[in-house]
Design a protein around this nucleic acid. Structure first.
Lengths: 341, 341
DNA sequence: CTCCTCGATGAAAACCTTTGAGTCGCAGGT
DNA sequence: ACCTGCGACTCAAAGGTTTTCATCGAGGAG
């Protein structure tokens, strides 16, 4: 009996074909235990035969769940889009959310208008939860989102009180310590640092790690730092400034690969050989950059894929049961040695 | 009368407060003309006072519209994510779709599993339409999507028959002609080409443009090309191969900025000065690359923001009324002069 | 043999909006 | 005085699923 009706099959159709009621069919779809093996099989067969797909809207209407999650990037400047890190995070998010069978609704927030729109949208109940990337100081979006009755997991530490927030961070400080210790172990005596912008906690953590590693014992080692703003051009300039301040420097820990690429250019222009004269360590281990600098860049790896995966898993847990306690997770970082140090 | 009921207000509540029926309130929200000014005002006031937001699921259920659009990137290899172009397209999509007040559901398709999932999802009626980025030859996804009763707008020409498809393309061939003519106008005699992969039509169009521009009159000019695969490393190698074939080459048109960056490195290693010995023109005008090569790269600009904006606009038109005729739009490209040529 | 329990199932309400059909009042034409 | 036409509005159905509550039947205990 080939029904050439072009309309999509409904649960009713499935139930009819399986010889059960809509309720039972529904139970099968939702893996309820209270259903006989025969019914289960019959329904599954009908679903398959009809190519049935649940109507998301109808389901959302009754469950008050949308089956969608927002992924929000808050970044005042558009610079983020030249940062390959961004693409990596998006890719990881898309994969992890698809695996969880959840729609990924992407939101990019730049202007105040965007912010208002995001507020409306998130408050409007259009998603079940959100993954928020908002690294900057005093980001209004964070205070907005915080007030919403919406499960949210943050990437890294947003600025401000962390009370009651769920987040997955990378061990920036630990990674910085790793990098700096490595430079020390190479026998370098005058180690300097190109830092990220002072309004991002990841940059501050890396700076702190650098300071910690040095202050432990080596009073004699230079501890000069310069802000490179997490851009290639910034890294270039910061390196130049450092060279001016400490002409005899023999190592530099740069807080991002992008900046490190700029720093390498400056060093080369200044006639310094890397790693012979100056050892360089970056941060991020962004392959597209680190493997293509000359020489290839030793760098601290933070596994963004893993970070996003954990964020999604945690959010799913939040969505499943309300009683998950607040959690701050810290992912380890490792040093990846290449040729620059 | 402050109702401290925590539940979100429904249209019923709005109607009650405005002293009209649900139907009238609905008509106000949907900007129906058949409503008196007083009613309109009363409803709007109530909406505002209650902070009412329509329930998307309920609306979707009855209108059979989801208010969401899929943005699909089909790319067998993950290389796309190191290409800054990708981030730019995503950003443009997010902005344009948000402006159209539509949810952007991002889908990244790599494996066959992803493909099956995408198929299920798109066929499942979870979105009203799709923007598809699938440049590669024999991409199964395209044939899958083509069979779906779903409005789709493609970015660039997908491989295969274009019958009945809507797409917005860049004038790759025209841009290539522009680039090549420019090199000719500089008096260069031995012009070569680093092409993109032969399984992407954009690369082929650029190659054709190159050939066209040369074959018109200048029989004497070398017409050697090499595939650089749209990667930096590929550009590097292709350039080396070209140098081996045509040691006296004095100009090169490279089909992407990323490859051009690689090519520049090769040229420098070979002791060629740019632009004195060899003039170089890239394609894409990707600022993050073109402005940071040394020397800065002359390049053909294709405006991705504009492309995506047109794609969204066209898709919205398709969604509004069914009778839009098939359309292939071609966006102009322009040459941006910097120092490399 | 009857009563009870328990697991499987079905009927129906609920979720919230859009929309076609129908109502009402009023102005204008005959 | 009556009908017509029309604009503004209301009523209620429809849309597809989940979930509560009731029912049914079988099997075990008494």
């Amino acid at each position: 009996m080939l029904v050439s009706n072009h309309a999509r099959p409904t649960l009713e159709d499935v139930a009819a074909r399986a010889g059960v009621s809509r309720a039972t069919a529904s139970r099968v779809l939702n893996a309820s235990p209270r259903v006989s093996p025969e019914a289960l099989e019959a329904v599954n067969a009908a679903v398959h035969a009809l190519g049935y797909q649940p109507n998301r809207a109808a389901r959302a209407l009754v469950t008050r769940r949308t089956g969608a999650v927002a992924v929000v990037f808050s970044e005042p400047e558009p610079k983020i889009f030249d940062d390959p890190h961004f693409a990596r995070l998006i890719r990881a998010g898309a994969r992890a959310l698809a695996d969880a069978d959840v729609q990924m609704v992407l939101m990019l927030v730049h202007s105040l208008d965007d912010q208002a729109r995001a507020h409306r949208f998130l408050a409007g109940g259009h998603v079940d939860g959100a993954l928020v990337f908002a690294p900057h100081r005093n980001d209004q979006l964070v205070s907005i989102v915080k007030k919403l009755p919406l499960p949210v997991v943050y990437a890294g530490k947003p600025w401000g009180s962390l009370r009651g927030m769920h987040l997955v961070d990378n061990d920036n400080e630990g990674g910085a310590v790793l990098a700096t210790e490595h430079l020390k172990s190479l026998g370098r005596k005058k180690i300097v640092h190109v830092a990220g912008p002072a309004d991002e906690l990841s940059a501050i953590d890396r700076l702190n790690g650098f300071k910690t590693a040095l202050s432990l014992d080596d009073k004699g080692i230079a501890r000069v730092t310069e802000d490179g703003g997490f851009t290639r051009e910034g890294g270039r300039k910061a390196m130049a400034a450092l060279l001016a301040k400490v002409p005899a420097l023999d190592a530099v820990f740069v807080a991002s690969d992008l900046m490190a690429a700029g720093a390498l250019e400056t060093l080369q222009e200044a006639g310094k050989r890397v790693p012979e004269d100056v050892a360089v360590v970056g941060f991020d281990d962004h392959v597209a950059i680190a493997e293509h600098t000359s020489p290839p860049l030793t760098s601290v790896r933070q596994d963004s894929d893993e970070q996003v995966k954990h964020m999604v898993e945690h959010l799913m847990k939040l969505l499943r049961d309300e009683t998950v306690k607040t959690k701050k997770e810290m992912l380890p970082t490792v040093l990846v040695r290449r040729e620059s140090a």
